[in-house]
Structure formats: structure tokens, C-alpha cells
């Protein structure tokens, strides 16, 4: 493998210099904007319109409008909790990518990086519920509770998918998981974990089939009573979460920055964009699934299947001795 010439020994990821603290969120935001733009183009095509630049910049124009639009107020809101929740969604996404390597560089090379990513993704539970609670209004409240119900469904299979990758590498350090995929990407022998992981990403960013907490049947749910900058932060946070999830799929299942010819960081970017494209496509293709139905699918089908999948690397690792 060509790119491994600068990757000596087991160490495939090094802590990046301090300026990466700024670069990582910028890269995350850039990819999220690309995802939103792609989504807008798909929406335009679905509506039968011809491709135009105007179509691609619709989301950015909407963002600019929200920046100057007045915030929405309700009767007796809990402003502190609402703002905490609104900021929490985006902050969780940014903190989550701190352990995701771009090529052979990572902001924080934490020895429990996988658990950290999981913890930051779970922060969305707290944040989205607060966004539902804060406005003191019916539809957001229903949306907030829907997210928690959906969380109980997607979270356990999602955690098992993370555990599967960690078991294959016998380490919770993201760099070790990349290094363990030198011979074979994990997606090849952990396909079920990969699919469950992707479903989890769509679920914690409450997009596509998992937009039930922000469903049209409840007037936008958690989004219903937000306006202006609050709404912008919330919408951006969702896409940042989707992007963070796509970025983490690369070191977990797709060999991280490993690949021929091109430098490691290019491979990381290419793979992230590919995963992101698949997620955006799925978001438009799949219908919303009710949380009560997904709970049943998750607990009756996905958890046993994910446990069986986790058993595969466990046995392989035991067999290696």
C-alpha cells in the first residue's frame, strides 16, 4: 500500500498541530454545506426542475435569510434550556469529530475515541429533548419526546455496531481501528454493523426516514417554534451531525486514510464524501418511519442481528490467539 510509506509501524495517526482545532470544525462545516447543496439539487430534480445555480444555493440563501429573521417567541418559554438545546446539537457534532482522523492527523488521539464519539452523539438526546421542552408549546414537546423514543430504538444496535469495529481492532482508539484494516476493510466482514451504523447516523441527525421528531404531521415538531438564528443553528446542527457520522464511518469501516497513490487525507475526504452522498440519497428516498414501529424492528430484529455480527470479530480475535 503506497500511502503507508509515511505510516510507520502501528502508528497510522498522529496528533495534529494546534491549528487543527480550527481546521476540523471548518472541514466539518464545509462538508455539511456540500451535503446540503447536494440535497437541494436532488430536491430540485425530484420536483422536475432543470439544474440551475440558483437551485444549488437555495439552502445558503435560506441560511442568510434566517440570520436576519427575528427569533420566534412563545408564551412563557424556558429560554435558557431552549438555547442550551439549540447550541448543544451543533456543539455535539463538532466535539464528536475531535477524535475522527483526517488522513493520518487527528485533533485528539484519545485512547477511548470510539466511546467519546458515542458519548457526543448521545448528547443529542439531551439537546433535542431540550429544544422540544424549551418553547413551552405542544408540537415541539411531542417532537422532543419522539426523539427520545427513537433514541431508545436506534441507540443499542448503533452501540453494538461501534463495539463490533472496536472488537475487530481490539482497541477503542480510532487510530488502532484504522491500523487493523491494513489487510481488509472492516466493511467487508462486518457489513451488518456498517448498515446498522449508517441507520444510526441518520437517526441521531433526525433526517430522512428518522425525521419523525421533526415530522410534517406535527408541523415540524422540534423545529416548529424556532425561528431566526435558533432555527439556523438547529438545521445546521442536524447536517453537522450527519457529516460527523459519515466522517466517523470512514475510520471505523472503510479503512480510514488507507489507499493507493493519493495522500491519506485525500482518501479520508473522498470516502467521507462518498458515505455522505449515500446518506443524502437515502434521506430523500426513504419514507419516515414511526418510532413505535422502529423500536420493534430495532429490538426484535436489529439487536439480535447486531449481536451475531459482533460475535464474528470476537471469534476471529479469539482464534488468532
Amino acid at each position: 500500500m503506497n500511502s503507508s510509506r509515511n505510516l510507520s509501524g502501528r502508528q497510522v495517526v498522529n496528533p495534529a498541530p494546534l491549528w487543527s482545532v480550527l481546521l476540523a470544525p471548518a472541514a466539518l462545516a464545509g462538508l455539511a454545506v456540500a451535503a446540503v447543496t447536494g440535497d437541494a439539487l436532488l430536491a430540485g430534480r425530484a420536483a422536475g426542475r432543470r439544474f440551475a445555480v440558483g437551485m444549488a444555493v437555495t439552502p445558503l440563501a435560506e441560511a442568510a435569510r434566517l440570520l436576519v429573521a427575528p427569533p420566534r417567541t412563545t408564551v412563557a418559554p424556558d429560554r435558557l434550556l431552549l438555547r442550551l438545546g439549540v447550541a448543544g446539537v451543533a456543539v455535539a457534532a463538532v466535539l464528536a469529530v475531535a477524535v475522527v482522523p483526517l488522513g493520518d492527523r487527528v485533533v485528539v488521539d484519545l485512547d477511548v475515541g470510539v466511546v467519546w464519539f458515542n458519548a457526543m452523539e448521545v448528547v443529542t438526546w439531551a439537546a433535542v429533548w431540550l429544544v422540544g421542552w424549551g418553547p413551552n408549546a405542544l408540537f415541539p414537546l411531542v417532537g422532543g419526546y419522539r426523539f427520545v423514543a427513537q433514541g431508545l430504538a436506534y441507540q443499542l444496535p448503533f452501540m453494538l455496531a461501534l463495539i463490533t469495529a472496536a472488537t475487530g481492532a481490539q482497541s477503542l482508539r480510532v487510530a488502532d481501528i484504522v491500523a487493523a484494516q491494513r489487510q481488509l476493510w472492516f466493511v467487508v466482514w462486518m457489513p451488518v454493523a456498517f448498515l446498522v451504523y449508517l441507520a444510526g447516523v441518520l437517526a441521531f441527525s433526525f433526517l430522512g426516514p428518522f425525521d419523525y421528531p421533526a415530522g410534517r404531521d406535527i408541523a415540524g415538531g422540534v423545529l416548529a417554534e424556532t425561528g431566526g438564528v435558533d432555527r439556523l443553528m438547529l438545521l445546521a446542527g442536524r447536517w453537522l451531525l450527519l457529516t460527523a457520522g459519515a466522517a466517523m464511518a470512514v475510520p471505523l469501516f472503510l479503512g480510514g486514510g488507507l489507499g493507493p497513490l493519493l495522500p491519506a487525507w485525500v482518501w479520508s475526504l473522498v470516502k467521507t464524501v462518498a458515505v455522505l452522498a449515500v446518506l443524502v440519497y437515502l434521506r430523500r428516498r426513504l419514507p419516515t418511519i414511526r418510532a413505535d414501529r422502529y423500536v420493534e424492528l430495532a429490538w426484535v430484529v436489529l439487536i439480535p442481528v447486531a449481536v451475531a455480527q459482533a460475535l464474528v470479530p470476537a471469534l476471529v480475535v479469539l482464534g488468532r490467539g
Binding site: 485512547d111 477511548v112 466511546v115 458519548a119 448521545v122 438526546w125 439531551a126 429533548w129 433514541g151
Partner: peptide
């Protein structure tokens, strides 16, 4: 104790949300 610290954060966020409900 990185593992314990991060797991406390992970578990407590989930637990407190369920508790609030």
C-alpha cells in the same frame, strides 16, 4: 481514567433524559 470518565458522560446523558421523561 479516560474510559470511566467518558462512560460516565455517556451513561448519565442517557439516564438523565430518561429520568426527565
Amino acid at each position: 481514567l479516560n474510559y470511566l470518565g467518558v462512560v460516565v458522560i455517556l451513561m448519565m446523558v442517557m439516564e438523565m433524559v430518561i429520568m426527565a421523561v
